[in-house]
Design a protein around this nucleic acid. Structure first.
Lengths: 347, 347
DNA sequence: ATTAGCACTCGGGGCTAGCGAGTGCTAACA
DNA sequence: TGTTAGCACTCGCTAGCCCCGAGTGCTAAT
């Protein structure tokens, strides 16, 4: 049913379409690709492929265009063949640039998106670390002035969050230290969620002496935790979409860009699988979100201290250069993980 | 030369063009606006206005379109008339929403851009606080574990920055406190730049006992200061530009969106006047940046603790609804300043 | 099973004509 | 002298038309 030649023809069409974005005719294939058969034969094969759902006709007298199903087949074969050797030279090159230009984690992620978009020429997306799975490493209360106290949270992945809050009456420095030490003892090593639970369970009973102060502080810690949970998404190269003829249509361009502009939607998109897997590819209609049902999204994860903490990916027309993008992404996954470990002093 | 009637005609044309985005003919004016003269007279006036540089003709047989000079005149008159009374009800409404949805400063700025874009239906820009002019309120070194130290900087406007750094050998807690106290004594109340200078001048001589440690810490503080200087820009409603017929042209839309996407350029744009003035309006060609020479940019500043710390604004086609935008911006300026003072506990 | 040949389809580019909105001039009028 | 009616003229835009060319699908020959 899908004999070898059909596969070859399909591949030829896909490759051709990825380059040209124009419907491919039988003649083009028989000329450009060396299949040793005439255009008439190709024509028959193409007709079969259409019946099988791998090709579509924009209209009767145009050539044919690969369907999502075709891309899926194509991608699966790329992944299976797994001849995706990493270009070490390029990897190190990128690593160098990234390391040099990124002092903070957020910056690193942002720069990665930028470079990724530059080398793939598609829109790049990246999501910054979530703290949910991170463990608390250090918590400290610092008195700033008479009425202000700063809460500093440090997670084991090195991310710092802080909040200032005000108190009615000054809390002496030494009391703050006692409280800080107590909190550290009780909470160190717990995840954000566990801390929330611990606080519900009233771990503070034994600190009755400081009840008043602690009552003050609990909501602050909760709030800080809430904020620690904040994730950031970055999109870079959004306007690259204009380079693709399929987006010469204003409405399509608008709907794409609007989608990318909606950060909340992007977070949903990128967190859908909750960071579990590595490389992920969704093609065209496989996407849940209406505005990108004619796009493909390829993402991969990066890790810190053996935890998957974020995602980086590329989005573009379904006829994107999957091979190039997959290679680039693998490279970024490794680089990000390496740099993060370095940046946060873990390796 | 510019008698009363000419002004009236010009205003009519501008108002009409702001609504329709189509060249206006003499007949339209004489019919729609009650000037008590015939279209022929209007025609003559329009011809004069063209000679004076207030109107342009797209081509011979089209109507006329206001020039940048015309908008400038128009805007100056709006500003002078200053009948811009603030709609207190609306102001409070917005304040309520902003307050409710913004826990952190960055969030507040971001939300402001969002709402501003929503109510004006143009693209909104906002830049987050710079610390350059802020004064150091508190600095503290915290030992996190054996080899990691956290530097926390708090500015008088309540903004917190922190950096983790590693040291070779553990520095005892009490030494850190001594150093922290020393730094606080020396540096409190200084601006970021002054601190840099102070450090160059070797204020650490008297701390010779801790020379080794301090030598370690100086670059860290410098780095923290560097990072403290980071500003964030937010753009919201970028795709609103697609709603305007003058951007039905893909290239123009692309160049606009590309410009907005370039955060560094945006920062330059918004910091050009270094936050000195309040309301600022640049129209069309008055803009330095090529891609927005057919846009108008209206910005205003917001303050915290009596310092101007950021800017928020709107960018759109030159035929934007200046009146509406100016009103909205005034409202945001006040609201942001008020909310910030509250959020940071100053009022 | 493959291929050459051919009729047929259909989108798109180019060309033309006509329309309609708008101008600018002239001559008459208050 | 400023205002107006009238009119010829301009010019972009749209609709309609034709034709080209790329491509298909069928048939008949190899």
């Amino acid at each position: 049913m899908m004999d070898d030649r059909k596969i070859k023809v399909l591949h030829a069409i896909i490759n051709s379409y990825i380059l040209s974005a124009e419907p491919i005719g039988s003649r083009t294939i028989s000329k450009q690709y060396d299949l040793g058969v005439s255009s008439a034969t190709i024509r028959n094969e193409m007709s079969d492929l259409e019946d099988l759902g791998y090709l579509n006709k924009p209209h009767t007298s145009a050539g044919r265009v690969p369907s999502d199903k075709a891309y899926r087949l194509y991608v699966n074969q790329i992944l299976q063949a797994e001849k995706l050797k990493m270009d070490m030279k390029k990897k190190d090159e990128i690593k160098k640039v990234l390391t040099k230009e990124s002092k903070e984690m957020d910056q690193l992620i942002q720069n990665s998106a930028k470079i990724l978009s530059a080398i793939t020429s598609y829109t790049a997306l990246a999501i910054s670390p979530q703290m949910k799975q991170a463990k608390l490493k250090h918590i400290q209360l610092i008195s700033i002035d008479e009425v202000e106290i700063l809460v500093v949270l440090v997670s084991d992945s090195g991310i710092v969050k802080n909040t200032i809050f005000r108190v009615e009456q000054k809390i002496p420095e030494d009391q703050l230290i006692i409280i800080s030490n107590f909190l550290n003892n009780k909470l160190k090593g717990l995840t954000i969620q566990e801390i929330g639970k611990a606080m519900d369970n009233g771990i503070f009973k034994e600190m009755y002496d400081f009840k008043e102060i602690i009552d003050n502080i609990i909501p602050i810690i909760n709030k800080s935790l809430d904020e620690a949970d904040n994730v950031e998404v970055y999109a870079d190269g959004v306007t690259k979409i204009f380079n693709f003829p399929e987006y010469k249509d204003l409405d399509r361009a608008k709907s794409f860009i609007s989608f990318i502009e909606d950060k909340e939607l992007l977070i949903e998109l990128l967190l859908s699988d909750n960071l579990d897997n590595g490389l992920e590819i969704t093609i065209g209609n496989e996407n849940i979100y209406e505005p990108i049902k004619d796009c493909s999204l390829i993402t991969t994860t990066y890790r810190l201290a053996d935890m998957t903490i974020g995602k980086i990916g590329v989005i573009g027309p379904t006829r994107m250069d999957y091979f190039k993008v997959i290679n680039a992404l693998k490279l970024f996954s490794v680089n990000l993980t390496e740099i993060l470990d370095m940046l946060m002093g873990k390796s």
